[in-house]
């Protein structure tokens, strides 16, 4: 797969700006798992802003599809049961570990939080373990 430096850096810059914007306006950390998990717990007076952010994410997807469709051009080789297992692990794991790549990775590291640094090291390590095992044991498809 081709590698370019500019797109990851610029995309990362936009991610940082978006997270700063949420902090500036709403005073919140832009952690997608926390925002979605909180939304799904349907607490009174704490749902609308979560919905607005999540609706923004999906709308951003529509914009990407219209302007840079190549960013959403991919094929998932994994079988439906593997995809389901992955979704469950990501859903439960991010809530138990109170954060994902955005909350711990972007905002947590950006805040120099030790908890987030530990979380990032752990999920990068287990992510590497999973991806490498699937490649070596199952030939890349599971």
């Amino acid at each position: 797969m081709e590698f370019t430096l500019i797109k990851p850096l610029f995309g990362g810059f936009l991610l940082g700006l978006a997270a700063l914007s949420l902090l500036f306006f709403n005073g919140r950390v832009a952690g997608v798992s926390g925002i979605l998990g909180g939304f799904l717990s349907f607490k009174k007076h704490d749902t609308l802003w979560r919905f607005a952010f999540l609706a923004g994410l999906v709308t951003g997807g529509v914009l990407l599809l219209g302007t840079f469709p190549e960013t959403l051009n991919f094929t998932l080789k994994s079988s439906p049961p593997a995809v389901m297992l992955a979704g469950l692990l990501v859903g439960i794991g991010t809530r138990i570990g109170s954060g994902c790549t955005s909350g711990h990775g972007v905002c947590g590291i950006g805040r120099l939080s030790q908890r987030s640094m530990i979380a990032v090291v752990v999920f990068l390590s287990s992510g590497i373990a999973a991806a490498v095992s699937i490649d070596l044991i199952f030939g890349g498809e599971i």
Binding site: K7, G11, L15, N26, W49, A55, G56, V58
Partner: peptide, 15 residues
Amino acid sequence: IFLSGVLFALGLGIS
């Protein structure tokens, strides 16, 4: 807040 979400999605896509 909605626009922050849109920008976040664009960042994810471009990156």
